[in-house]
Amino acid sequence: MNVTGESVDAIRELINIGVGRAAGLLNDMTGTHIRLEVPEVRVLRYTDLPREDRLVDGSRLSAVTLMFRGPFSGMSMLLFPDKSAAVLIAALTGEKIEEGDLDALRIETLNEVGNIVNNAVMGSITNVLGERLVYSMPEFREGSITDIMGESRSGAYDWVILAVSQFTIEDLWVVGNILMIFEIGALDRLLEKIGAVTGTSP
C-alpha cells in the first residue's frame, strides 16, 4: 500500500479539525477543559487492527459508532474504557451511577455524546472535501475492540487507515479515543479528493 506522508498528514489535519470542534462541544457539555493529544494516523492491515496497543488497552470498551458510505466509506467511533463511559454520563447528567449500570436512557445519552463527536469529525472532513456521505444512526456497542468492530467490514479489502486521537476530560480523568477506520477501497477516493484540495497528488 502506497500512501504518501503528505496524504497521511492531510488526513491527520482533517481529523484534527474535527476533534478540535468535538472538544469544543464536549467542553460546553461538561464545563471542563478537554486536553487533546496529537492524533496518530497509520496505514495498516485490517487484520492487525485488534492488536493495536492503543485499542486493546482494556478488555472491556464502550463505543458509539457511526458508519458512513459514499465516495469513501468507513467507520468513526468514540471509544472509552469500560468505567469511563459511566463516569462521563454521571458527570453529564449529575446522576450517581454504579459502574456498568447503563440502561436505555443512559446509553442514549452516551449515543448523543458520540453523535456530537463523530458528527464534528465527519463534518470537518466532508466540509473540506465538499463530499456528501450517507450515515448510519449512532450505535452503542460494548466489548473488546473486535466485538465493537463486529461485521462492520463492508468490502473485500486488506488495508485501512487508522486514526486515533486521544483526549482527556481533565476534571473527570476520563480518557477517550476518537477512532476512524477508512476502508481502503475508499482510500484512493479520499486521497484523490485531498490531493485535489491541497494540490498534492496521492
Binding site: E108, E112, N115, N119, M122, L133, M137
Partner: peptide, 24 residues
C-alpha cells in the same frame, strides 16, 4: 442556543443526523 444551533447547522451542511437524547 449554540447547543442546538451548531448541531442543526451540521445537519444542513450534510453531516450525519443529530441525536438529542432524553436525558439532556
Amino acid at each position: 442556543e449554540k447547543r442546538y444551533a451548531l448541531r442543526i447547522q451540521q445537519v444542513f451542511e450534510g453531516g450525519p443526523a443529530a441525536l438529542f437524547s432524553t436525558q439532556f
